[in-house]
Structure formats: C-alpha cells, structure tokens
C-alpha cells in the first residue's frame, strides 16, 4: 500500500506538469508528431501498408520517446536541487525512496495520459477494418513499459545534476544507447572491443528488441521482467545518488 506522503507528492508532481506550459507543449507536440509520422506519405505509412493494424504507429513510438521523455524527466530532481526546494521536501516526514517513487509515478502517469490521447487512432483502425485488439493492447502496454524504463533513466540523470539541460542531454544519450543496443552497427562496434559474451549481454539490454517483441503480439514474462528490472535498477540508482549528493 502506498504511503499517504507518497500519494500526496505524486499528485502534486503530476499537477505540476500543467502549471507550466511544459505539459501542454509536450502533449501537443507528441500527439501531432506521432499522428503525422503514422500517416506521412512514405513507404512505411499507414495507408501504404493497407492493413488494419497500428504497427505504423508503434514503430515511431520509441523515436518520439527518445526526445520527449527526457524533456519530461529532466526537471524531476534538477529543478528541486537548483532552487533548494529539495531541502523543504526532504525535511518533511518522507524518505528519499518514497520521494523518488512518487516523482517517478507522477511522470509515468503523465506519459500514460499522453498515450491515452492517441486512442482516436484505435477507433480509426477499428472503423477501417478488423484489427486484432489484443495486439493493439500489447502495443500500448509495451509503449507504457518502455516509457517507464526511459523515465527511470531520466530521473537518474536528473538527480545527477542541477542543470536541466545537462540532464536532458545525458538522458537522450543514455536512452539512445539503450534503444539501439541491439542494432548491428553498435553490436559490431562493441565486438571489436569486447568478447562475444559482452556483445550478447549488450544485445539483451536493448529496449527496442523487447519493445518490438511485445508490440508484435508476443508477450513473454522475460520482456516484462526486463522492463521491471530496468526501472528498479535506475530508481535504486537515483535513491543512492540522492542520498549521497542531495545537499551539494
């Protein structure tokens, strides 16, 4: 059961996205961007594929997230540390662990809201044909889980620095590496440096591979574990980091 303080902080953090233009700008850019990319008149476009599925939509989700998730996560801790309000927050009866979880859940909820905003796409596909709603549901689940993993990474880099821009850039780089970890150019590069064992390990860390396999409709427990462990690992890192350097 979630503690009262965690819940209250989470609500406040969620609302804070709508106190500044950030929340609205994000939602508009995300919804417009993903809509455009899905229907753009290229080879991978929705109409060119002539099938009632959302694969054109889900294919672009990781790339939208790559730039938009760091924008959501960059303020989580960097802003508090810069303004000094972290001192206010952490001298209230709340532990660092509770605060990290509350902020993470608030940002995750915000991305959840952004994904909810794309539901007209489901109706469009449903109107045009007979899509497999199970696959669509899994696609959304994969998108949401991936958002959680990337937000946890972003929260960590936000806790690392007081500067939001630095936090943004580091998160984009880290997310790019995590998303691309399974791609041939990166794997080839790594195989020139490290033994095969590490190459396999690196490949298994690829967010994109796990995302793709759920999105295609193959949901295995290992994918679910992968995202859970990634989230847990980066949140744990944030807690350790904040305990060490919250006052600097």
């Amino acid at each position: 059961m979630m503690a009262q303080v965690t819940k209250e902080l989470m609500i406040k953090e969620f609302k804070s996205y709508f106190k500044t233009p950030l929340g609205y700008v994000f939602l508009v850019i995300f919804l417009f961007g993903i809509g455009y990319l899905t229907f753009e008149p290229g080879r991978g476009s929705f109409f060119y594929m002539r099938e009632a599925s959302m694969s054109a939509f889900f294919r672009y989700i990781p790339w939208m997230f790559l730039f938009l998730i760091p924008a959501v996560s960059m303020k989580l801790w960097a802003e508090e540390r810069k303004s000094g309000s972290i001192e206010l927050l952490l001298t209230m009866p709340i532990t660092v662990k509770q605060a990290v979880i509350a902020k993470f859940l608030a940002s995750w909820g915000f991305i959840g809201l952004a994904l909810l905003g794309t539901t007209p796409m489901i109706f469009t596909v449903g109107y045009l044909g007979n899509p497999d709603f199970g696959v669509i549901t899994l696609g959304y689940l994969a998108s949401f889980l991936m958002a959680g993993a990337l937000l946890a990474v972003g929260g960590f880099f936000s806790a690392l620095t007081k500067n939001q821009v630095v936090s943004f850039i580091l998160t984009v780089v880290a997310c790019f590496v995590l998303i691309m970890a399974g791609s041939p150019p990166i794997l080839e590069f790594i195989s020139t440096l490290l033994p095969k064992y590490f190459v396999d390990l690196f490949e298994s860390l690829s967010v994109l591979n796990h995302f793709d396999s759920i999105e295609r409709g193959v949901f295995s427990l290992s994918n679910f574990w992968f995202f859970s462990v990634t989230i847990f690992f980066w949140l744990f890192g944030s807690i350790v980091l904040l305990n060490e350097n919250k006052a600097n």
Binding site: Q4, V5, E8, L9, K12, S16, K19, T20, S83, G84, S85, E87, L88, T91, M92, P93, I94
Partner: peptide
C-alpha cells in the same frame, strides 16, 4: 516535530500560496 525555514526560503514557485500550504499540510498528514 520540526518546522523548518531553510536558508533563502526556497518554495515551489509555480504553486499558489493557499494551494502550497494545503500541499504541505497533506504532506504533514
């Protein structure tokens, strides 16, 4: 049992005064 005013009095600037005090009250259970 402590009430604390940190140096330079940092606050959540984007909140309204009453809303901010309500948030603190809830955090203080």
């Amino acid at each position: 049992n402590i009430g604390y005013v940190p140096e330079n009095a940092p606050l959540y600037e984007e909140m309204y005064v009453r809303e901010f005090l309500e948030f603190i009250s809830k955090m203080r259970s």
